[in-house]
Design a protein around this nucleic acid. Structure first.
Length: 293
DNA sequence: CCGCGGGCCTGAGAGC
DNA sequence: TGCTCTCAGGCCCGCG
């Protein structure tokens, strides 16, 4: 499910119940997610205070007062649900609406405050791993990541340079987390549409002969900023699994221009095109062949 | 370096 | 009703 806007939405939802709060006890309800849990997983969390909750690309990073960092990834179907303690609820008890299927709650954090935070992941492509803060720069999962698309290091010059030597499509380049970290299939399709750039275009055409940025690179960076900021504002996109931490749906899916819109008329003013879908690098690409060049 | 196919998992939806 | 097939917000590996 989750790309940067969904992960950021989750981070913002977890922040008030995690940051500065003590973990009383962690339950792992099965032995593995994508990988087996480390044998000392719960022991390194129980009783510790979360000093900060950050995000790098699609990873959530919970800093602990022990010097460890809990690295979490939502995979395709991961979500968090927060249940706050209420009047007659005794600490540790929590109740969700009956309609909710909690059968895939694989990790449950019981906070000292009484808040209960459940990680649900039907497909189990997500994972949690504890890494010593001192070793985080050597963590393979984080090491090769490119810049944050909403950070200062990501601009047209940087993007052009990263793409200059590439013999691949724009779509593939933007999905490559080493080029820019946090975009996935939805937001790449949407950003390319907004920039009127074809997903098939060679990535290297973002650069001029000297490797500097072209106008299309500048336009694309602006489109990426716009679509990500709008999606974060909307609480992400809920297609199947994504929920905000209070159970509410995100609503950016209602703003999709091309993703999942095969056959719909193009939304570019005056464009007579139709949204098409094809498979690129094993994933569905949605685009308007008439106005994305 | 690149694209491709396959794998990891479960569940939803379509078609029969 | 139920079966079978395809597809899904990610990411990794090996092959040619």
């Amino acid at each position: 499910m989750p790309e940067l806007p969904e992960v950021e939405t989750v981070r913002r939802g977890l922040q008030p119940v995690m940051e500065g709060q003590r973990i009383a006890r962690v339950e792992t309800r099965r032995g593995d997610l994508r990988f087996p849990f480390q044998s000392d997983f719960a022991a390194r969390l129980d009783g510790h205070v979360v000093t900060g909750l950050g995000r790098r690309a699609k990873y959530l990073l919970a800093d602990l007062d022990s010097g460890d960092v809990l690295v979490m990834h939502l995979g395709m179907s991961g979500s968090f649900r927060v249940a706050l303690p209420e009047g007659e609820t005794t600490p540790g008890d929590f109740h969700y609406p009956r309609s909710e299927n909690r059968t895939h709650d694989h990790v449950v954090f019981h906070m000292a405050s009484g808040a209960v935070i459940a990680f649900n992941d039907p497909r189990r492509f997500g994972f949690m791993k504890i890494v010593a803060r001192a070793a985080i720069d050597n963590e393979p999962m984080l090491k090769g990541l490119g810049p944050e698309p909403l950070g200062n290091a990501f601009d047209a010059a940087m993007l052009a340079q990263a793409c200059a030597g590439k013999a691949t499509s724009l779509k593939a380049a933007l999905l490559d987390q080493r080029v820019v970290a946090g975009l996935g299939n939805i937001y790449v399709c949407e950003a390319l549409f907004r920039a009127h750039l074809s997903p098939k275009r060679q990535a290297a055409t973002l650069a001029d002969r000297k490797g500097g940025p072209t106008d299309r690179a500048r336009h694309l960076v602006g489109s990426i900023h716009d679509v990500l900021n709008a999606a974060i504002k909307a609480g992400g996109s809920s297609l199947r699994d994504h929920r905000q931490t209070d159970g509410e749906l995100g609503y950016f899916q209602h703003s999709f221009q091309v993703y999942d819109q095969e056959g719909a008329p193009c939304k570019t003013p005056k464009c007579k095109g139709v949204v098409r879908r094809f498979t690129q690098n094993g994933r569905s690409t949605f685009w308007c062949p008439a106005c994305q060049k």
